[in-house]
Structures are given as C-alpha cells and as structure tokens.
C-alpha cells in the first residue's frame, strides 16, 4: 500500500522545461529523499505527485493505478509544507481533523484519530490553541500531526525543517525518522540539505536541473558516486577535485574526500601552505592552498595544531580516490 511509480514525467511552465523526464520507482514503506540544489525542480516534482501541478507529459501511478487525472484530495496522500501552512482560523485540533471532516468521517472517529496523532507528537496540551499562539517548532509538529491523522498511503514533505533553528532541526529530524519506523508508511521527502538526506533516507534521488543524476542508498552514493555532481553534493565537507593530469594519471579529474587526504609537515605528494584551520573538537579541518591544485580541504580526526602559513605536504589515499572523465562521468 503506497508504492509510487513515475514514468518519464515532464513539466514545463510555458517554454521553460523544469522537469525533463523523470523515471522513478518508490517501494511501499520506503523513505525516499529528493535532494538537489535550490531551483532544480524538487518542489515542482513533489507538487506533481500531490496533484497540485498537472504533468506536461508522462505518467504518475500510485499502487499501480494512474493518478494523473485524480484530484489531490482523492490521491490519499498528505503533505507537510516548509511554511507549515496551518489554517490560521482553526484550532490545532480542527486543523488536524479538517481532512477527515471533509471526507465525511464521524465525529468520534475524528477525535480518536486526532488524539492518537497528538499523543505521538506530544501535542496534547496545544490542542485548543490557534496557530498564531504556537512557536515555529510546535507549528511544524502540528503540520506533521495533520498529515498523520489522515493515515495516507503516501507522506510528502517539502523542506519541512528549513524554517527551524539548528537544535530543533535535529530533534524534528529524529522525530520524523521515528515516525517512519512506527508508521511504516511510504515517505517522500524533499530537501536541499545533504545531511538531512543522508540521515533520513532509505534511498536518495539526486536531482539536477530537472533530471535524476543518481538514485541509491546513502552509502551507495557516498562510496560509489556516478559523476562529479553527486560526488560533490553528497558528503560534508565537500569532496576535493584534483587535476589528475598534474599527478601523472590518465583520468581528467580525481576526487578525494577530505578524510582521505593525509597531511604531513615533512614530505608528501603535493606541497602547499595552510590557509585556514577550523577546530571542531572531534575533528580538525585544515584548508591548504596547494599551488597548482587550488584550495583543498583536509579532515583530520582529533585535535591537531597547524598554523596558518605553515608549509605542509598532502598525500591522497589513491585506493579511496574516484576518477572522472572530462564530462564529469565516473571512470571505473
């Protein structure tokens, strides 16, 4: 219950093509994250799944049934928006119950469903308040509660954590992961933040300019990126891209993650000078200006003392390096 299939889905606004042919199969119960830079069409794709935008071409199917012509309310899905989008004139209880009321569910059943959702998110004390009387975090929990109440086949989240502060973002992220385990429902989650994608997803779909770049489990994308875009997007700090020719290799570009660069004061493959150091306690990030290779990031575990301006040498771990051709495609 809740499998989603996209077949060659396209969308154009006038003459601008925003979604340029997306094929995707999301299994029942899966947590699927769409990730990509701002403006790549994630929200548009999500709104098309919800039925809020028409498809220009292609087919969307839920549980094997074509839904292109089905109204949003009839697709049995729920959506959580970045801006919360709570109904300002209704109390929390009525906000959560509205969809069921519209569907003609009896009063006692609505109360039961809202109470159950309120329990899951500890919203009990807030039930009689209006959205204006809630904090940002509480509003987002109510918005999530409103989605749960409907027991939908498909949960859609559009950057639900973007408007929260850092601490709340982590807490709500954990809460969403817990909900996914408890409800065992299919969830599609849109974000531009690769950390959210990595921590929540069963499967990540990396989008760029309306096309799917790569689909896979978080560790698959991390350990086996298909091109420089995915390699650069997944993982933080970002992967270093070295000019492979200068290092005497056949490929065009060599990608090495910051943790796979060794830093030494004495000797190494590439000389450079330290340009900036960030000490985070558990790890130390050293930014090294490596002459021909430009600025490289080195990630060291634990505390290290490097001074700005110091001469250092960098050696990439060749066994963990990725090679790409001139078009950015991975060479295997």
């Amino acid at each position: 219950m809740g499998a989603l299939t996209l077949s060659n889905v396209t969308k154009s606004f006038g003459t601008t093509d925003v979604i340029k042919g997306v094929d995707l199969q999301v299994e029942d119960g899966e947590f699927c994250v769409f990730v990509g830079p701002s403006g790549c069409g994630k929200s548009t794709l999500l709104r098309m799944i919800a039925g809020l935008e028409d498809c220009t071409g292609g087919e969307i199917a839920i549980d094997g049934k074509r839904v292109n012509e089905v109204a949003p309310a009839k697709r049995e899905l729920a959506m959580v928006f970045q801006s919360y989008a709570l109904y300002p004139h209704l109390t929390v209880r009525d906000n959560m119950g509205l969809a069921l009321k519209q569907a003609g569910v009896s009063k006692p059943d609505i109360t039961k469903a809202t109470d159950r959702a309120a329990d899951m998110l500890s919203l009990g004390p807030l039930l009689d308040r209006r959205p204006a009387e809630l904090s940002g975090g509480q509003r987002q929990r109510v918005a999530i509660g409103r989605a749960i109440v409907r027991t939908p086949k498909l949960f859609l989240f559009d950057e639900p954590l973007s408007n929260l502060d850092a601490a709340l973002r982590v807490a709500t992220r954990i809460e969403i992961a817990r909900l996914h385990r408890d409800l065992a429902a299919t969830m599609i989650y849109v974000t531009h933040d690769q950390i959210e994608a990595m921590t929540l997803a069963d499967r990540i779909v990396v989008l760029r300019a309306g096309r799917v770049e790569q689909v896979g489990a978080p560790m698959e994308l991390y350990n086996d990126p298909a091109n420089t875009f995915v390699a650069g997007f997944i993982g933080s700090p970002q992967m270093n891209f070295l000019k492979a020719g200068a290092l005497g290799m056949r490929s065009d570009t060599m990608g090495v993650r910051p943790e796979h660069l060794a830093l030494s004061r004495e000797a190494g493959q590439m000389p450079g000078t330290v340009s900036h150091v960030e000490k985070l306690g558990g790890e130390t990030l050293v930014y090294v200006n490596a002459e021909a290779q430009g600025l490289l990031t080195v990630r060291l575990f634990g505390e290290h003392n490097f001074n700005v301006g110091e001469a250092v040498h960098i050696t990439p771990d060749a066994s963990r390096a990725f090679h790409f051709d001139a078009n950015g495609q991975r060479l295997r």
Binding site: L77, A78, Q82, Y84, A85, Y87
Partner: peptide
C-alpha cells in the same frame, strides 16, 4: 497569500470556493 496554505486546503479536500471564502478572504 501563501500558495502552501491554498495547496494544504486542496490536499485536505476543500473546494475552491471554501479555499476562497475561508482561507483567502480572511487574510
């Protein structure tokens, strides 16, 4: 008026008239 709010109404099954009268007009 926020698109998200109107879209939330559509997903919850409100008619365009209800969206207009109860969500948009008060704002």
């Amino acid at each position: 008026v926020s698109d998200d709010l109107k879209n939330a109404g559509r997903i919850d099954g409100l008619s365009e008239y209800r969206i207009f009268f109860t969500l948009v007009l008060p704002l």
